[in-house]
Amino acid sequence: MTSVDSPVCASQGDILISEVGPRDGLQSLKATMPTADKLRWIDALYAAGIREIEVASFVPARLLPQMADAAEVVRHAITLPGLTVMALVPNLRGAEAALAAGVHKLTVPVSASEAHSLANVRKTRAEMVEEVRAIAALRRERAPHVGFEAGLSTAFGCTLQGEVPEDEVIRLAAQCIEAGADEAGLSDTVGYANPAQVRRLFRRLRAELGEHAGAAHMHNTRGLGLANCLAAYEEGVRTFDASLGGLGGCPYAPGASGNVVTEDLVFMFEAMGVRTGIDIERLIAARAPLMAGLPGEPMYGMTPEAGLPKGFNAAHAAKETKNV
């Protein structure tokens, strides 16, 4: 969900694909992508039709050197017309820096697992809800037009804690909305989720939060990323996070690996006749600046490797699907 005054592209389509590669895709890598290459990559994503990008995380450079150029990256991204520029902020200090840089949307990681919360942000879940409250107050005072979401990490399970009770996930999401977040989405941080669980939890989330229920952020750790996104779509979710080339993973969650591949997700939805507003050929071409900035880094994705089906046309796919 974008804020009321956030830029929105008219060709956005039936769903919104939010590209998180420049933040989530890079944060767990040992290599640091040069700033100039990041900017070229963001430009290529934008040229493909991506209209929401999580471009950076505002954290101390000593903790995540990959994000040391966050303010510079934001300042470039906000010059692209119609692009919603999003940044992750783990605390009030990060939110202050992100707002000063000019972001359109803030996202705060609030872990449903107490063990992961302590490892990731060194705060309990209750303390993170209070952090959400403080950031919401700052947003109201300085930039009420900026969007603000809480992303519930490890909502489907945790490598540190194991099972995360669903009642606790829903309760925490409601607490985040009460504290001032515009929306709360669910993240499968370590790739534990299955489609039945995704349907059940998003059904409960939407029943509890209504229009404040947010995005699906799935990982493909065990090969179920696309299936889980489809399950979320069938429950009414219309915003999906994904990472070009499948890069990503939480450095504070052992065993976590790549995000859902943006190219595969876009192909799946377009083949179904669900419009994304994204040119898939240009999206695949956006891998070039990514690979140039991260030479030797493995890239994932079935669609880029196999190529598009002969004669594939997204508009044709939409027409054929509606005629079935």
Rank of each mutant, 00 (worst) to 15 (best):
P7Q: 05
V8R: 13
G21S: 01
L29R: 00
K30F: 10
M33T: 13
K38P: 12
I42A: 05
Y46E: 10
G49L: 08
R51T: 15
I53S: 07
A68E: 08
V73E: 00
L80S: 08
G82E: 05
A87Q: 01
L88M: 09
N91Q: 09
L99P: 00
A112M: 09
S117A: 08
A126W: 09
E131F: 10
E131M: 12
A137F: 10
R139F: 03
A143I: 14
G147K: 01
A150K: 08
A150M: 13
C158P: 09
E163F: 12
E163W: 14
P165K: 14
I177G: 08
L186Y: 03
A193V: 13
V198P: 05
R199S: 10
R203L: 14
E208D: 08
E208T: 12
L209W: 02
A215W: 12
T221N: 11
L230V: 05
A231G: 04
A232Q: 01
T239A: 01
T239V: 03
G246C: 06
L247Q: 01
C250R: 00
S257C: 09
V261F: 04
D264R: 05
L265V: 10
R287E: 13
A292I: 02
G293W: 01
L294M: 10
P295A: 13
P295V: 08
T303D: 05
G307P: 00
P309F: 11
P309A: 06
A314P: 12
